[in-house]
Amino acid sequence: MPDKLLMYFQHPFVRYAFIVGVLIALCSSLLGVVLVLKRFSYIGDGLSHVAFGAMAVAAVMKLTNEMLLILPVTVISAILLLRTGQNAKIRGDAAIAMISVGALAFGYLLMNIFPTSSNLTGDVCSTLFGSASILTLTQKEVVLCAILSVAVVLVFILFYNRIVAVTFDETFAKATGVNTQACNLLIAAVIAVIIVLAMNLVGSLLISALVIFPALSAMRIFSSFKSVTICSAFLSVICAVSGIVISILAGTPAGSTIVAADVAAFGLCSLAGLIKRGTGR
């Protein structure tokens, strides 16, 4: 089996898949904790559908670089959605449901009216579930992904303390002079970038799993913000690597295998948490 893996590693596309997988898993887990705690778990789902719609538009317009359209559209939607989430008069969850389902339907409609290839069902399936796309990345996409991931990690580290303060108690942070609005905008923009990145790895239907599972798993075991963040980053990377390895060896789709690994990790962590609590007293 190691021989088989070694053989696979000679192919650049397999190496690319690993690099991109690890980077995306790392980024998506970092903000997962914030999203879960701020009750924004659903936003990942909504945004991924928006990104799907934008991707369909980009495909129809035959843009050479789809990112140029998808990224700004998703960032703007993220900002708008977080805005409505703050405004008590408009139901935030309803707005998200509307936008996400609308974008999904619109995207599929466009792909149907202007088919770009003969295998429409296959195209749709791979954007929704990211079936094979991870193994077809070009060098340019890998570089872009690496740059964006490094930017996300840097932003997260530099603003870590502010993000913690705003997540724990936004009112207090605002009252004592933290620019909470700017902080929320930053969080929204970073989330959008992560979603767009993660579409390559697991497809748009499974992104939420990538963002939320590691955070929830880590919260079962640890009880400080820092340890939860670090643990969820580790878990996410481990699950992504093992998911990709299994998918190569067993020939399963990469995205759903990674998510399955995340689910398994959640089960293990829940168990560990129960045992820890049991022995704790």
């Binding site: 303390n161 913690v164 303060a165 724990f168 207090f172 009880s223 400080s224 913000f225 820092k226 340890s227």
Partner: peptide, 11 residues
């Protein structure tokens, strides 16, 4: 909410 006392006071 996972936050230690130290983290909260520091915030």
């Amino acid at each position: 909410f996972p936050a230690s006392v130290r983290e909260i006071v520091l915030s």
